[in-house]
């Protein structure tokens, strides 16, 4: 059995027993952010695009699902599908506007668009403004399984996460993923081989937005609310941090990064108060200066034998 298979099996076992060991809602929150970070990494790590507006996709899906569950009383799986559809559509709009720009300009445009989305939710009548959309019911899965119980909700979230993670792995390894990698490595060369690079980037952007949306929708079901925090630029920054901490361009890095950040925030929220921001900032700086490969990247690079980590002297967006 390969090392990779072993790691995944261990992860799966951990996923199944985690709610017995830890507070289930916290684990679910970690899984949602892990999926969010994986979606973000599909762009940064595997396409070379730094989006600084990914909260817009997380948050739009969160609101959309919250709205559908509350006002239309749909079943949770339909609520998720609706949220994902909204994010994917928004992703197509963002992508169409931003994709032709390079590097920092791309990041700035995604940020600006995400800010517009933020103000939209701040003003829109259906989002509950500063209070957010509260008391979203979890509903019954397929109209049969009530998700109100945390353990039922947990295994549903775990299944969504496994699906999302599997999908991203599949995309990375697919013929499409090879082209994305080529674009990340050398866009001009990919173009000279006859690939319409803008279309590939756009599709990658939409897929990333859709999966980020899946994470946001799931989060609303778990926590029962969607708020302005979900669409705030700080959340866009957090996902960058999670991905960097875990390891850009590694498959499991963002999961580890999300775990570290969410647990840290959870632990520190009571103890450190406003200092959380400072601590997060310090981690960010430390990562960029000293651990450019992130946790998973550093481990893979030090592992005896074949290293699976991308070399970082030539990072994305160079």
């Amino acid at each position: 059995m390969s090392r990779q298979t072993l790691v995944y099996l261990a992860g799966l076992v951990l996923l199944l027993v985690a709610p017995l060991l830890f507070y289930p809602v916290l684990v679910m929150k970690v899984l949602c952010f892990a999926l969010f970070a994986c979606a973000f990494n599909l762009l940064l790590g595997f396409t070379g695009l730094l989006s600084f507006g990914h909260a817009a996709f997380l948050g739009s899906a969160a609101y959309a699902t919250g709205f559908a569950m509350t006002h239309w009383a749909v079943t949770p799986e339909l609520g998720l599908i609706f949220g994902v559809a909204v994010s994917a559509t928004l992703g197509a709009v963002f992508g169409a506007i931003a994709i032709r720009r390079q590097g920092i300009y791309f990041a700035m445009i995604t940020l600006a668009l995400a800010q517009m989305v933020f103000f939209f939710y701040l003003q829109a009548p259906f989002t509950g403004g500063e209070d957010g959309l509260q008391g979203v019911p979890r509903g019954k899965l397929f109209g049969i399984v009530p998700l109100a119980e945390d353990w039922a909700m947990y295994y549903f979230v775990a299944a969504v996460f496994v699906f999302g993670f599997w999908l991203i792995r599949r995309i990375i390894g697919s013929p499409f993923g090879q082209v994305l990698k080529a674009i990340r490595e050398n866009e001009a060369r990919a173009l000279s081989l006859g690939y319409e690079v803008d279309r590939y980037k756009l599709l990658a952007f939409v897929l990333s937005a859709a999966i980020a949306g899946l994470a946001g929708s799931t989060k609303t079901l778990v926590l029962g609310f969607a708020t302005l925090t979900d669409v705030h630029w700080a959340t866009s920054g957090e996902v960058v941090l999670m991905t960097l901490v875990g390891g850009v361009g590694t498959v499991v890095g963002p999961v580890i990064g999300a775990l570290v950040i969410v647990v840290l925030q959870n632990e520190l929220a009571d103890k450190a108060g406003p200092w959380v921001t400072v601590i997060m900032g310090t981690i960010f700086v430390a990562c960029v200066l000293a651990f450019r490969r992130g946790i998973v990247g550093e481990i893979a690079a030090r592992w005896p034998g074949k290293a699976g980590a991308p070399k970082q002297e030539h990072g994305p967006g160079h």
């Binding site: 090879q178 081989l193 279309r199």
Partner: peptide
């Protein structure tokens, strides 16, 4: 990745496995 452009049909198939390459 160059051969793929000529011979592997559409490269937008993000759902296909690596084996197809």
């Amino acid at each position: 990745v160059a051969l793929q452009r000529r011979h592997a049909g559409s490269s937008y198939r993000f759902w296909h496995s690596e084996r197809s390459l």
